[in-house]
Design a protein around this nucleic acid. Structure first.
Length: 886
RNA sequence: GAGGGUGUAGCUCAGUGGGAGAGCACUACGUUGACAUCGUAGGGGUCCCGAGUUCAAAUCUCGGCAUCCUCACCA
């Protein structure tokens, strides 16, 4: 073989893009063919990012984890499908386009709906390319052939099927309700699209004079401007203070309109004055109260959040917030404002633009959720869906238990237009799967479509099956639905996860995925959420540019412990990068030593103890990765790979192989490099899900591999490699070496100083035989010039410094550099520690209850501990005596 | 107001009913034929506090304290 030269330093830029293109262009992300369409499969639908958004670390995290799962199961040989895609993000995308228009000095209304949508599609295409490119940069091995967009033809058909079906089932209705309305976005929002946060405001006490001139009452409010919509004043029926006032009329200041005092039990006796102004059109509680008492409703807002013609002229067209100050000032001037105190209260904000949300009375479309929520709860109770970690099931069940109807109409243009038509001739409302050309009742052509569009989530809740072709019974749908696992963040458990389960049960009759892995949140080093407004985010693309996609994925997965948020900064990714560099260099070392070697056939490998040990460790690592995939403990898999490759393979096995690599015996050299390359190739397979690009790059350079690592088989635990006995032998050897190394370190013996060691073993057994055969290796690891394995304890140890171990003692000859006092103190310390331990152990062993109740295993363990502690104490005492003779 | 998470080394965090762990940082030594993005060794912890269960608790239970989050909100 010829040596292969690798660049001295790992540089992911050299190969990541190239390899991604190779994979993609060769269809390696597509599901493999199979005969049996109903066979076992593994599929994931990617949570669709906002098409006009930019990937943030949260996306990088959840796509990294999905990628690990997909690559693992792909290598396991399952037909594997990862569906990528984006959603149309109604509000956000419309914003972007409107902002562009604004810069050009036009409004969308000037353009008209059709032209506006054309333009929005162009914007969508441009942004789509950005986000798709970002997904490629971070290495996602999703099947681009299956990419979907929520407004694709097929998905739009699914949305319409869903809407019409729910309407037919009487689960969709239209009505005038008080909804959350964002004046900035100009649209209604669902309840969960409103974020509540504390806002500094004022609590105003205002006098409302009795109409008969007999005095005043005082009401308290935080929003005085809404008084133009007041229709009553309510007190608690139990409130003795106001019993006599019920039924009396008061005049509204500033307008003089008369309203009556009524009773309603929702009024708190303690808060404020115990008197509440009732404004049904502008407060949810008042709305409910108004319904109970059949009160008139006065809407005082325009759709842009300014006061309307129901208000006195001077306030008209003034934004509500500004009107508040005006009203307060006017009330004060006219003597109606008796008190004004600072008051912090929770105010709803639009989750897209953070504008204060107004309760706003309007005609909207709703989905009746109760029946679907019940089914979704039942499915969870039956164990059809499982959350990892389990704690999120509380969030899920709590939300479903207290669910409210879902407002799905949005006053936007970008989105799925509601498939409802109104006939201007006869007033008929037509809800149809196909666009009608005439009224189904009177035949008039004079029909017009509903102008509102649907909430974006109304399309994404169909994502797991609409992307696979539903409502058509496609091959993809039959093969890959239900999907296997959903990986997402906890912030969208209600928005999306619960709704997908509901939709799937409703339309397909089964859950859309079995396992739901909820990732932690990516935070900065101080624990704050990464957000645009704080400016503390890290751009995943910058991470990739600086450290590479492999380093990013490995770092994130190593930190992805279940239920924990991940705190990182840019430097955190050095961790993965260092590991990648280590792998790179180990490979580089092996490849440069291939020169003139002949590859030995694997079945002719003659394995020694060390070889068996490393195969055992590899075997265990494969088992750990398998367990971690099954339990979604990604960090366990990452640690297993890290520990195996660095601590076992590089630090011990490669080091132990060096003497053989430089041997004079060509056969030994061939055999040694062959096994090393075999281990290296298998390591690449082992780590491919976590370290994808480099493992592919290295795999392709190895002389003992064919094809790509991405679609080769994954290492599996096998009984044949379960060399537990050999593992024990090597662990023992490591202990011997570590003991002597520690002594070297403590005695400050310079690394180049070669030493003589005598190693006494207590009994003659396989361990001593093994040690006896490893003197060359011990010399290397210890930089010793003489190693004596002293089985019959006949060697002269005078003048040597002793090291105690379990089952052995080592004696190191270093006359020059010993601080006897220090050594003795160290041993005395050791004795104290061991005596303390021995004490504890003896206490347990002499405790009848322990002996009677403890598992035999625990008792045996205590017994062996006792022996070990006694041995250490005895040896240490002996060694102290020995040191004193020096 | 309701619910939940977290509290282990200086930092970021694993872990576990039975002898306290990793990475980073730190200290010492080292450029020995891949890797200084490295190697070898070392220091460093009442496992938040208190009680209970148990033969045994850092681990399980309860109660505090601290911190973070989610949901619901009273004008």
């Amino acid at each position: 073989m010829k040596a292969v030269e690798l660049k001295k330093a790992y540089d992911p830029k050299d190969f990541e893009d190239r390899i991604y293109a190779e994979w993609k262009n060769n269809g390696m992300f597509s599901p493999m063919a199979e005969d049996n369409e109903d066979g076992e499969h593994f599929s994931i639908v990617m949570p669709p990012p906002n098409v006009t958004g930019i990937l943030h670390m949260g996306h990088a995290l959840n796509n990294s984890l999905q990628d690990i799962l997909i690559r693992y199961y792909r290598m396991k040989g399952l037909p594997t499908l990862w569906v990528p895609g984006t959603d149309h993000a109604g509000i956000a995308t419309q914003h972007i386009v409107e902002k562009q228009l604004q810069e050009e000095g036009i409004r969308r209304q000037d353009l008209g709906r059709e032209k506006f949508l054309e333009r929005t599609w162009q914007v969508k295409e441009k942004h789509h390319d950005i986000i798709a490119h970002q997904l490629e940069k971070i290495g996602t091995s999703c099947d681009w052939e299956h990419e979907r967009f929520t407004m694709d033809e097929g998905l739009s058909k699914a949305v319409r099927e869903c809407f019409v079906t729910l309407y037919e089932k009487n689960l969709i209705y239209k009505g005038e309700y008080l909804v959350n309305y964002c004046p900035h976005c100009g649209t209604a929002l669902a309840d969960d699209e409103v974020d509540h946060s504390e806002e500094a405001g004022k609590l105003y006490d205002i006098l409302y004079p009795f109409s008969d001139g007999s005095g005043n009452i005082t009401i308290a409010t935080t929003r005085p401007e809404t008084m133009f919509g007041d229709i009553a004043v309510a007190v608690n029926p139990e409130d003795e203070r106001y019993k006599d006032l019920v039924g009396k009329w008061v005049n509204l200041p500033l307008t003089g309109r008369k309203i009556q005092i009524i009773t309603d039990s929702f009024v708190s006796l303690e808060f404020g004055t115990g008197m509440v102004k009732i404004t049904p059109a502008h407060d949810p509680n008042d709305w409910e109260c108004g319904k109970r008492h059949n009160l008139e409703i006065i809407n005082i807002l325009n759709s842009d959040g300014t006061l309307n013609d129901n208000c006195p002229e001077k306030y008209r067209n003034v934004p509500a917030y500004d009107a508040r100050a005006m009203v307060a000032a006017d009330l004060k001037e006219q003597g109606y404002l008796v008190k004004e105190v600072d008051y912090n209260h929770e105010v709803g904000h639009c989750y897209r633009c953070n504008t204060i949300v107004e309760p706003y009375l309007s005609e909207q479309w709703f989905v009746s959720m109760k029946s679907m929520a019940d089914k979704a709860l039942e499915a969870w109770q039956a164990g059809d869906v499982k959350f990892y970690p389990k704690k999120w099931e509380n969030t899920y069940s709590h939300w479903l238990t207290s669910i409210k109807d879902w407002c799905i109409s949005r006053q936007l243009w970008w989105g799925h237009r509601i498939p409802v038509w109104y006939c201007d001739a006869c007033g008929e409302m037509i809800v149809a799967r196909e666009d009608p050309s005439e009224c189904s009742k009177c035949g008039s052509k004079n029909i017009r479509q509903e102008t509102d569009v649907l909430d974006t989530w109304f399309s994404s809740w169909l994502w797991p099956f609409s992307t696979l072709g539903w409502p058509e019974k496609t091959v993809d749908f039959t093969r890959f639905f239900p999907t296997s696992t959903l990986v997402t963040g906890y912030d969208i458990i209600f928005f999306w996860v619960a709704r997908m389960i509901m939709a799937s049960l409703e339309f397909v009759g089964e859950v859309p995925f079995k396992d739901i892995y909820i990732t932690g949140l990516v935070r900065d080093k101080t624990g704050r959420k990464m957000s645009k407004s704080l400016g503390n985010g890290i751009d995943p693309i910058e991470v990739v540019n600086e450290y590479g996609s492999d380093a990013m994925k490995f770092t994130l997965s190593y930190m992805a412990t279940q239920g924990q948020d991940i705190m990182i900064d840019m430097d955190s990714f050095k961790f993965g990068s260092r590991f990648a560099n280590k792998i790179w260099n180990a490979t580089r070392f092996l490849l440069m030593n291939m020169e003139d070697r002949n590859l030995v056939d694997k079945k002719d490998f003659k394995l020694n103890v060390f070889d068996k040990w490393i195969y055992f460790r590899l075997n265990e690592a494969a088992r750990k990765v398998e367990e971690s995939m099954k339990s979604y403990r990604f960090n366990d898999g990452a640690s297993a790979i890290y520990d195996f490759f660095w601590n076992d393979f590089c630090d011990w096995y490669v080091e132990a192989s060096k003497p053989k690599m430089y041997s004079d015996d060509e056969t030994v050299k061939d055999q040694t490099i062959s096994i090393l390359l075999d281990l290296l190739a298998e390591s690449m397979r082992l780590m491919h899900p976590y370290i994808s690009f480099m493992s592919e790059e290295i795999y392709s350079k190895l002389p003992n591999t064919e094809g790509n690592v991405i679609n080769t088989s994954y290492p599996e635990w096998s009984e044949e490699r379960n060399f537990a006995a050999e593992n024990d032998l090597v662990l023992n050897l490591q202990e011997v070496i570590r003991g002597i190394r520690a002594l070297r370190g403590e005695l400050q013996i310079s690394p180049e100083k070669r030493i003589k060691c005598i190693i006494r073993v207590d009994i003659s057994d396989s361990k001593s035989d093994f040690l006896n055969n490893q003197t060359d290796l011990l010399k290397i690891f210890l930089n010793a010039n003489e190693i004596i394995i002293d089985i019959d304890k006949s060697s002269d140890i005078s003048g040597a410094v002793p090291v105690a171990g379990s089952g052995f003692e080592s004696f190191v000859f270093v006359k020059d550099a010993i601080d006897v006092e220090k050594e003795i103190a160290k041993l005395e310390n050791e004795i104290i520690k061991s005596e303390k331990n021995l004490n504890g152990t003896n206490k347990k062993l002499s405790n009848e209850k322990f002996m009677n109740n403890a598992k035999q295993e625990a008792i045996d363990k205590e017994l062996s501990k006792k022996a070990e502690f006694e041995e250490v104490i005895a040896k240490s005492n002996k060694h102290i005596a020995l040191l004193k003779t020096l």
